[in-house]
Design a protein around this nucleic acid. Structure first.
Length: 420
RNA sequence: CGGGGUGUAGCAUAAUGGUAGUGUACUCGGUUUGGGACCGAGUGGCCAGGGUUCGAUUCCCUGCUCCCCGACCA
């Protein structure tokens, strides 16, 4: 993409009403726009990154047999009343509104109820399980206090997966498969090292649920971690009983701030019983489906990555999620020969399948470098009169600042092999 | 939801009971051209409603907004 056509601009100063690093940098770099408290719009660069995160999650969900759907965000109260969750006393984050005919409806904050009811039409036999169904869908939560930039908002896309098993044994296998997929996702996003599968409070059907907590100073939670064993316990369940269960001493745990980037939860038959999602088992008996739910917030992940990887110059994206792999920065473009040369490099990079943002603007070098650093694209390719005459390309790795010269042939052939 | 703040130009900020200054951004001209350049000229602003006052951006009230701390986050 030609930067001269990008409608967003960067800013020197962060808006005064943003305190979090993620929002400050994402706004300064032109990735997001704050519409109101807890509601952010995604601009071209931000949407590219968000979609890359979503793409990775989607690949891993598909990889374990997940089938993607999109449920409506409008919620029928009757299905929620069946589980007692339409009551504002039971759930305090509801956004509710009314149809023109005065019928009350809700805006979905999660989708267990409608998903469970919908599946009544499709799951009838134990032969119909296991099934995994997921979506990337906008959730609305009327949080009393939005905070931490894009990490805690009132409207956000969530990947929510629901699993349907014929019994608890089958469910446990799925649960583990999803946990494994989550680990792969966080590894691919470059935060696997600092992301812990964390014991958290369970429910009626399981003693524990699991959160995936990424260590970051921007985190809202505190988790107790034993790094050697890759073990973590959420503050809310860090007690004698749980530590005994996990065979860990209090003194071996380190309290660290963390952000919850995912969770996996055994629902059991709570929803299937309440909503009548029954299947016929091998013995001809009607039994409720054994369910699980599994969430990941792509935008929160994006915020966590900014928080963890940014440096004093700006954002540093992992290659897997950067809006572009390369930032082609053209200098001396007022010289028609250099511009023609740079344009050619841009076309060649695209022809070689390299996602590239081409700074083709007639701006000064310092400004271009500063903006490039702010945006955090992993590799900067500089072309100028100097590099044109020398017949080389100057490659700067954003993360390390390493500079190297490559020939044209090396650039196109070895780009993927450039070490970080 | 409890407590505390906040609101001035696109953005960041200053001053002020007598209609507002600076930086940046933007426009134009000129000089520049490998780390957000320099000179000159220009455009552009007091959250909303009510009150006090000769006069309110300023003081008071109400509302709204946004931020922070706490609670909450199934």
């Amino acid at each position: 993409m030609r930067q001269s056509r990008l409608f967003t601009r960067t800013r020197h100063d962060a808006p005064a009403d943003e305190v979090s690093k993620n929002a400050q940098l994402l706004i300064r770099a032109g990735f997001v726009h704050k519409e109101m408290a807890g509601a952010y719009s995604f601009l071209p660069l931000g949407l590219k990154t968000l979609n890359k995160i979503i793409g990775i999650i989607r690949e891993e969900m598909d990889g374990i047999g997940g089938q993607e759907v999109t449920l409506t965000g409008l919620q029928d109260p009757s299905v929620w009343e069946a589980t007692g969750r339409f009551d504002d006393e039971a759930v305090d984050v509801w956004f509710k509104t009314k149809l023109k005919n005065d019928t009350e409806i809700g805006l979905g904050f999660t989708h267990e109820e409608p998903m469970t009811r919908m599946m009544r039409e499709h799951l009838l036999s134990h032969k119909d399980t296991p099934k995994l169904v997921y979506q990337f869908q906008t959730k609305f939560r009327n949080e009393t206090r939005a905070k931490s930039g894009i990490m805690r908002t009132r409207e956000f896309i969530m990947k929510d997966l629901y699993s349907f098993a014929k019994n608890e044994d089958e469910h446990q296998k799925i649960y583990q498969q999803v946990a494994d997929a989550y680990h792969r996702i966080f590894n691919r996003l470059g935060i696997g090292e600092d992301t812990y599968q964390t014991f958290a409070s369970g429910g009626v059907f399981s003693k524990y649920s699991h959160e995936f907590q990424t260590i970051t100073d921007a985190g809202e939670d505190v988790v107790y971690i034993n790094k050697a064993r890759k073990l973590a316990i959420n503050q809310e369940v860090n007690n004698d009983e749980v530590r005994a269960d996990l065979n860990v001493q209090e003194g071996d745990l380190e309290a660290l701030p963390a952000s919850e980037v995912g969770n996996i939860f055994t629902l059991g038959t709570r929803f299937s019983e309440a909503l009548g999602l029954m299947i016929t088992n091998e013995d001809g008996e009607k039994v409720p489906v054994f369910m699980g739910s599994y969430g990941i917030g792509p935008a929160r992940l994006m915020g966590v990555m900014v928080e963890k990887f940014a440096d004093s110059k700006g954002i540093v994206w992992p290659e897997a999620v950067a809006p572009f792999k390369a930032h082609l920065v053209g200098l001396n473009l007022e010289d028609a020969a250099v511009r023609e040369y740079a344009d050619g490099v841009y076309e060649a990079l695209k022809d070689n399948g390299i996602e590239v943002l081409y700074d083709d603007r007639d701006a000064r070098p310092g400004e271009k470098f500063a903006e490039s650093d702010l945006m955090g694209i992993p590799y900067r390719i500089i072309v100028s009169r100097k590099t044109m005459e020398a017949g080389v390309f100057e490659i700067v790795t954003r993360k390390t600042g390493d500079v190297r010269s490559l020939s044209e042939e090396e650039l196109y052939r070895d780009f993927d092999a450039i070490p970080e």
